[in-house]
Design a protein around this nucleic acid. Structure first.
Lengths: 184, 184, 184, 184
DNA sequence: TATGAATGAGTCTTCATTCAT
DNA sequence: AATGAATGAAGACTCATTCAT
């Protein structure tokens, strides 16, 4: 009968990924607990969102670790990264837009650390001569987020097939749309 | 003293682009009118959002027309398109995420027409042998939106310089991140 | 149909004097308006309480002015004061206990000014040789509040007759309970 | 490990004397037990308050007994009474205002017995020719409570010195503020 | 017996919307 | 046509209380 906060977060993440404006009541229902209990575990909506960010950061970081993005060829590392992120991309897309849309909310500094790792990946790729140097690592990082979110939303809305997404995000990011770039 | 709905929409668009959760009161204040008057012109928040979508569609369409995306070389047409969209990308990013995040709201079918034109552009490019055929036109369209939104948010948050955005979005979209792709 | 905030305050004061724990809903009902309207006029419960304090200060100050407590014989001035306060003593008793019981709430500094005027009255009386000097003016002021509140509560609970209160408060304050003191 | 209800009451009294609006959680924390245990010992907040009243009555009664208020000269008895009450005056002030402010709660009839003893003291004083007969015993009793509460609050807020309180309450109650009354 | 956990009920507050001038 | 004023509906939050271990 004891409620595991992890489970509540999981359910909240799943719901908010689908409907970003869900109320505390909706979230409580989705988690199968009462509103009061939800408040007992997360003191207020802000606290819940912050906890969700922590969860997102944790999952994101796990993906980065799994992908060993600091090791080996940057292109290969990016491949591994996109593959590893895929399963949580919907949730991350929610957090990404949440952070963009709700100004004023303190943005969890945990993201900065992850941003830095990804930016470093692109920078390493540039130093290895694998990535273009006219596109800044910061922009490539941002672009990866944007493509990931677009893909997640496209899948969610039925415009894209889930199985294709990984390939498409990666290929576009690596080689762009132009023929002779990435399809050689 | 007569209020021009166009002006109100313009102000609302400007405000919501900055703060997507602005209340009707905020919007009315930004437009310099009373809440009651705002409601006289737009029967409810939904109606206002729908009108904003109309405005977005209108602006988007104007950009597509200006760029003559149906004419000439697809790569050049895409260049013109990205350039023409730039000025309204922030507003479009707002509408894009609004449509993703608030399920239930009927999505204005006007977007489909525009999506179709852009998808057609990518398809034409593929037929011209300019664009890769392993990335679907639908995905390329979606990806363009995602990159545009990311760039707009990056600029808004100060992570990217406004002057670089057009180049970076276009180059990534065309040539991807990999060296030897688009920087030859 | 326009609601006069003064009327709302009056009704709120009347209700809270009777039942200090009345909810915002109760207060709104007592004032004949909706909760939302109550919030429109007073942004939150704290703001309402603060406004009530202002009203109390105003009424109290009016009583002090009416009684001309700075003029003439201190004993006579005190007589006039107790008489003038009588009609608002219930309300003041509410505010008095409110200030005692709810620590943390910023106490309106307006009270300090009134306290000072009353304290000055007792001091003047001491200098005129009319009041004992072994009881500090601060205590006499505090005591007057306490007697006033006790009397108001006694009347409210039916233990005391309203018509007697003025005399009893004044006589006790001036002459105490001991025979040969004030009943000469 | 066994919880002594007496200890809980003691702690609750101490806390509520300081902060009358303390929640059950606060009270439980102050007593060093869990909320559930607090409820096991006192079935509900009302029951706790009623138990506190019992405690107050008990302490009050003990003070009255200690002071032997039924014996000897009424003035001397009153002196002893005020002295004996002093240590519990803060707690009694809390119960006093609690009873005034929260209508609906059944007032413990135990108070009536104590009121009667004090009223009898003043009546005896009148019959002994020591107290004025134009101030009713009921009012003098009520006034004593009011002065006691004012003094307790004044001390708590730092407006009065604890060491002076007994003298000031007693002197005002006996002789009033007027010179030549009590300071002869 | 004591308690961590869960919750129903109630409060405050905000927002979109309507009304009367 | 425009607006100040009023409100119903809905959400966040707190608290006293109960349950299961």
């Amino acid at each position: 009968m004891a409620v595991d906060p992890k489970d509540v977060l999981r359910d909240a993440a799943a719901l908010l990924t689908r409907r970003a404006t869900a109320s505390m009541d909706d979230i409580a229902k989705a988690a199968g607990i009462s509103r009061a209990t939800l408040h007992r575990h997360f003191a207020g909506r802000d606290a819940l969102i912050r906890a969700l960010e922590e969860l997102g950061i944790e999952r994101f970081e796990a993906a980065l670790d799994t992908a060993h993005i600091e090791e080996g060829d940057a292109v290969e590392a990016l491949r591994r990264l996109v593959g590893a992120i895929q399963p949580v991309s919907g949730f991350l897309a929610f957090l990404y837009s949440e952070n963009q849309l709700f100004e004023g909310a303190e943005i969890n500094t945990g993201w900065a650390r992850l941003d830095a790792r990804i930016t470093a990946l692109f920078r390493r790729g540039q130093e290895q001569g694998k990535f273009r140097i006219d596109l800044t690592p910061v922009w490539l990082t941002e672009a990866m987020y944007g493509l990931m979110a677009s893909a997640a939303w496209g899948v969610y809305d039925g415009r894209l097939a889930a199985k294709d997404v990984e390939y498409m995000v990666l290929e576009l990011l690596l080689g762009g749309a132009r023929r002779g770039s990435g399809d050689a």
